[in-house]
């Protein structure tokens, strides 16, 4: 060992020489593939985001239920919904009856993409809607013709204008315990959840209040008057239109995201600086 211990010196340049040579060959930089990957991911992600926003922009259009084609609605129903909801909408052991749910319920469930469900789960999730606005209204007209139920709300309540203070107060008292004060959503039992209300159209919020989809209770007109519903919508519209005055909102999730932020980014960057400050100069 004594002999070999003294000899490693000459071996050094040979080992360090190899990487030095490879950088000089003018070959593609090792970062090139990473860059390509990033570009590819950004392109796909961007395209997907554009597609989904384009899809959700369609919802809540102006097609009216009065002019809707009930026959077309029935065809669509038989082709897409009857398997679970029964051929007359009477319900099966897979899915509830649609008699009496009204046009509002159909417009909400189908218009937000929750129905038809993609997969059985704790809760139907929002996704890009499968039907156009016109088809949705046709479906709604058909279901409404089976039995009376809550109708699609009148446009006067959907303007997003109203008493914001009143709406905010009502929202905090009636909605915030599940949907969070800023409408960011929250957890319910057994994997169910109250979804985020960001970017949800006024019509869908109103319809959700009067029909109580999934785990949501019904807020009928005796409980919260149509004007107050409009006020709540006005508050949510205000939140959507005004970014947080304090800067990034961290998802409006409260102290948990603030705590993670302070540990990861604030303390993280400060620790990085301490390492830099005490690094030995070579």
């Amino acid at each position: 060992m004594a002999k070999s211990a003294s000899s490693p010196r000459p071996s050094r340049p040979a080992r360090t020489g190899r990487p030095a040579r490879s950088t000089r060959t003018g070959r593609r930089s090792p970062l090139a593939s990473v860059a390509l990957l990033v570009v590819g991911l950004l392109a796909t992600g961007g395209a997907y985001a554009m597609f989904t926003t384009a899809a959700s922009a369609e919802e809540g259009g102006n097609a009216s239920i009065a002019t809707a084609d009930k026959e077309n609605g029935e065809k669509l129903f038989q082709a897409n919904c009857a398997t679970c909801h029964g051929s007359n909408g009477e319900g099966t052991n897979q899915a509830p009856t649609l008699l009496g749910v009204g046009a509002a319920s159909v417009d909400f469930q189908v218009g937000t993409g929750r129905m038809p469900m993609a997969v059985q789960g704790p809760q139907a999730e929002r996704k890009p809607p499968q039907f156009t606005d016109e088809q949705t209204k046709d479906l709604a007209a058909y279901i409404a013709s089976l039995a009376p139920g809550p109708d699609i709300p009148a446009d006067e309540y959907l303007t997003g204008k109203g008493d914001v203070t009143e709406g905010a107060e009502l929202f905090r008292i009636n909605c915030a315990m599940c949907h969070n004060v800023a409408g960011a959503g929250g957890a319910l039992t057994e994997g169910k959840f109250a979804p985020s209300l960001k970017g949800v159209s006024a019509a869908h919020i109103y319809e959700a209040m009067i029909t109580g989809p999934q785990n949501m209770p019904v807020f009928n007109d005796q409980n919260i008057s149509p004007e107050d519903k409009a006020n709540i919508i006005a508050y949510l519209t205000y939140l959507d239109e005004h970014a947080s005055p304090g800067g990034l909102d961290l998802g409006d999730l409260g102290p948990v995201s603030e705590g993670l932020f302070v540990w990861i980014f604030a303390l993280g960057s400060i620790v990085a600086i301490t390492v830099w400050l005490t690094a030995k100069s070579n």
Binding site: I173, M177, H179, L253, P255
Partner: peptide, 16 residues
Amino acid sequence: GPYDPSPVSAGTQPDW
């Protein structure tokens, strides 16, 4: 909003 003993927001947590 101002404190009112009746509402509780989802995601009510203390600071970390």
